[in-house]
Design a protein around this nucleic acid. Structure first.
Lengths: 228, 228
DNA sequence: AAATATTTTTAGGCTCACCTAAATATTTTC
DNA sequence: GAAAATATTTAGGTGAGCCTAAAAATATTT
C-alpha cells in the first residue's frame, strides 16, 4: 500500500481551492487567483505550489499556472466531501442557518478520520446535495452534477427557474439572499435585463418583484422548470 | 469586552493537559510530566510555559512547575467540555465504540465555535457524563463530580463496586478492558490484593473471575454500590 | 553536607507557512 | 514590435513550535 502521508491543513486547503477555481473544465489556475482566494501573497503561493508539485499533487510549470493531478484531485474531492457533509450536518441536525455554516465547516473539513466521515454520511442518510445545493461526492469520489444548471445571470428573459445553488461562500451574500426571501428551491421569473449594468428585474415567486445586480445573479445557480 | 485572542491548537492542548495533570487538588505540574504527556522534549515545554505565563494563563516560576490561573482554567474546562461532548456524539449518534473515539475527539475539541458546541450539547440532550463516565462541564464551566468515586486499585477487599470511568486514554487499555468484558456499568467484586505486585483478584460479575494488574486497576474509576 | 543523580532551563538550530522587496516573465497597450 | 502594465518568481526574513546539547538548579543518596 502506498504510504498515505498526511497533508497539512494548509496543503489540503490549497488543493481544495485549486479544484474549485479550476472548475469542471479543469482550467489552469493562476498564482494570483489563488492568492486572492487564500488571502496570501503571490510569493507565498509560489512556495506552496513548488511543494505540492514535488509531492505530485499538482502539475505546475513556472508562470503557467497549475492544475491538479489525479492524486491531487482525489484528495481535493475528499476535502469537499467532508466540507459539504459537515455543512449538511450543521443545518439539518443542529439547525444552523445555511448562511452561517461555511466558516465552521472550513475547520471541520480538516478532521482526519475516514471512518468519521463515512459514519457521518450514513447518519445523514447519504445526502446527495448540501444546503447550498452543491453536490456531495460519495466515498468513492463520484460527483453527481445536476443537469442543466446555469447561472441566473445567464437565464433567458421570461424564463422561470428554480434556485439550486449559491456559489459564493461570502456570508454577506447569503445574508442578503435570506433578507430578500431568496432561498434554495425558490422560483424566479426573469423579466428584463437592464443593458447599462446587466442587472436583472425578477420576481421571486410568492415573495416580491425586485432588481438584482449582475454580480449577485452570477452567483446563483438555477435550472429551468417546466411549469410554475 | 476583553479582547478574546484566539489560542493556537497547541496552547489549548497545554492548558488541557495541565488541567488534567493537576487534578482536583490543583497540584503543581512539572515540566517533565508535561513532556511525557505531550510527547515533547522538556525544553520545548519550558518555551511554551513562558509564553502561557506571559499571557497570564498559567502561573509559572522557574524550576517550580506550573498551575492554571483562573483565566487558564476557564479555557481548559471549555476544551474538556468540547472533547467530552464530541466523544458523546461519536458514541451515541455515530455508533463508534467508546475505545475508538479519543483520537478523533482530540482533533474536534479544537474547532472554534461556541455556537457549535452549545448546539451540539442541545442535540445530545445536555448529557452529564461522557462515554468514559467522565463529567461534561456545562456551558458555564460547572463540573458535576460524581460522589464517592475512587480508583479500583483503592477499593476495599470484599467490596462490590460499579465501574464509572476509565481514566487513561490509551486505546490498548480500552481494547483490553473490552476483551475481558469490563465496561462502564460493570459490577466488580474485589476478592484479594496480592501483596507482591498489588494486583487484584476480582470478579467481573456475570462474566469471569480473573487477576488484573495494579496499573490497570489504577485507571478504573468505581463507586461503591449497596446491593448486587 | 558533599557527591551524585535528576530535573529544568538556556542557547542555538530547524521546518513550516507566511511575509517584503526586488528581479524577471508575460501580457497588454499604443 | 517596443514600451508599459501586470503577473510571477526569487531572495532573504519572521514567528510558532519543535529539536539537541550543554549548563544550571534541585533532589536524592551516602
Amino acid at each position: 500500500m502506498a504510504k498515505q502521508e498526511f497533508l497539512s491543513h494548509s496543503e489540503e486547503n490549497y488543493l481544495k481551492v485549486i479544484f474549485q477555481l479550476a472548475g469542471q473544465e479543469r482550467l489552469k489556475v493562476s498564482t494570483n487567483a489563488l492568492a486572492d482566494k487564500l488571502c496570501a501573497k503571490p510569493s507565498s503561493i509560489t512556495d506552496m505550489l513548488k511543494k505540492l508539485s514535488d509531492k505530485k499533487l499538482i502539475s505546475y510549470k513556472k508562470y503557467q499556472g497549475c492544475g491538479l493531478t489525479v492524486k491531487g484531485e482525489v484528495i481535493a474531492i475528499q476535502i469537499i466531501r467532508k466540507h459539504r457533509l459537515w455543512e449538511t450536518f450543521l443545518v439539518s441536525k443542529l439547525s444552523f442557518g445555511w448562511e452561517e455554516v461555511h466558516d465552521v465547516a472550513e475547520q471541520l473539513e480538516h478532521i482526519q478520520s475516514i471512518k468519521l466521515i463515512d459514519k457521518l454520511d450514513e447518519f445523514l442518510d447519504f445526502p446527495k446535495f448540501d444546503p447550498h445545493g452543491d453536490p456531495i461526492p460519495d466515498r468513492a469520489g463520484n460527483i453527481t452534477y445536476r443537469k442543466s444548471k446555469i447561472k441566473l445571470a445567464e437565464a433567458a428573459i421570461n424564463a422561470v427557474v428554480e434556485v439550486v445553488s449559491v456559489d459564493e461562500d461570502s456570508p454577506s451574500l447569503l445574508k442578503y439572499l435570506d433578507e430578500i426571501g431568496l432561498r434554495l428551491g425558490s422560483r424566479i421569473k426573469v423579466f428584463e435585463r437592464i443593458p447599462f449594468d446587466s442587472s436583472l428585474k425578477i420576481e421571486i415567486v410568492g415573495v416580491q418583484k425586485m432588481y438584482i445586480s449582475e454580480k449577485v445573479a452570477d452567483n446563483i445557480g438555477v435550472r429551468f422548470i417546466e411549469k410554475l
